[in-house]
């Protein structure tokens, strides 16, 4: 056997374990979902048959899907800008030479380390009507009691707040790393020119953080559309579908109603949507990002 052929063989052998897992549990299921979305759901007495785009037509006519979709847009619009802004703010703050900055960094990062199930349960307590933390505070000021998670008007906002709390610290770590890659001499040069802290941030730090912002933004969008554990623990999509997000709806359709073909079609729509968003983000922002 020639060296080259042997190298190729060894290369493939080394790739094989990871490749097997990826193909078995990622690539094939994705492809299978796409195929299944064009079939009807198999029932005990009626096997799956090809139905063309019937599932997709159903999606267009499905009011719950549209509500889940608009909920998801609101959820994304609420979590993404706020958590990114908070992340930058915290990162800039704990990047400076402040006393106890290691403590501050750890404190900000803690929510990320906690599992979402635990976080959701903690916040469930905060939001509990009657004796929850929030109620105790508002009650102390004599404000009327409010069921934050139980009312359709406030449930989505309450869930959004939790997501912001959990994500901001995670994004902060990326910003912190990026800030530390900016040479300190730039700050000195700017201070010699008389630039204020804000000017330095606006004209130097923020533009130099753009690659990180792009990365974080794409992650934030993906996170916003694949959020499910928090919903399951906190609201189960209720009240009256007020907090049903797209992935939770897919989960419900697939595993509560067992309409797997329809769930497959919904999954394909979600994937296409995410792909499109990532494509647009790269396409538009890439040109405005300065890479070093």
């Amino acid at each position: 056997m020639t060296t080259r052929a042997r190298d190729t063989l060894i290369g493939w052998a080394l790739l094989a374990p990871a490749m097997t897992l990826l193909v078995a549990f990622t690539h094939w299921p994705a492809l299978a979902s796409l195929i299944e979305s064009f079939y009807s759901t198999a029932r005990p007495r009626r096997p799956a048959r090809f139905v063309g785009t019937a599932n997709y037509e159903q999606i267009l006519a499905d009011p719950v899907f549209w509500q889940a979709f608009s909920n998801n847009l609101l959820y994304a619009a609420g979590t993404i800008p706020v958590s990114i802004a908070l992340a930058i703010l915290m990162a800039v703050w704990v990047n400076d030479r402040i006393p106890g900055r290691t403590f501050a960094r750890v404190a900000y990062f803690t929510p990320t380390v906690l599992p979402m199930i635990a976080v959701a349960n903690i916040w469930l307590f905060f939001f509990t009507p009657g004796y929850g933390l929030l109620e105790q505070i508002t009650g102390a000021f004599g404000l009327p009691s409010h069921n934050w998670l139980g009312s359709p008007e406030t449930a989505l906002a309450a869930v959004t707040v939790v997501a912001i709390w959990k994500e901001a610290g995670f994004f902060m770590i990326f910003y912190l790393a990026a800030l530390q890659a900016i040479p300190p001499v730039l700050a000195e040069a700017a201070s010699l020119e008389g630039a204020s802290r804000w000017t330095f941030f606006r004209r130097v730090q923020f533009p130099l953080l753009m690659p990180t912002t792009l990365f974080v933004l794409i992650n934030a969008v993906i996170n916003a559309f694949r959020m499910i554990d928090q919903i399951i623990v906190m609201t189960r999509g209720g009240p009256d579908n007020a907090t049903t997000l797209v992935l939770f709806y897919i989960y419900q359709v697939g595993f509560s109603f067992w309409d797997t073909a329809y769930a497959a079609a919904l999954t394909v729509v979600l994937l296409a949507l995410l792909g499109l968003v990532a494509f647009v983000q790269y396409g538009i922002l890439e040109r405005r990002v300065h890479y070093r």
Binding site: P183, V185, L186, A189, S191, P207, H290
Partner: peptide, 21 residues
């Protein structure tokens, strides 16, 4: 006084140019 109010200019060893500008 802070650097900006000393009426000085400075050239750094690493030049300290803003890479995105």
């Amino acid at each position: 006084l802070p650097p900006a109010r000393r009426g000085i200019a400075m050239v750094f060893q690493s030049y300290a140019l803003f890479p995105h500008l």
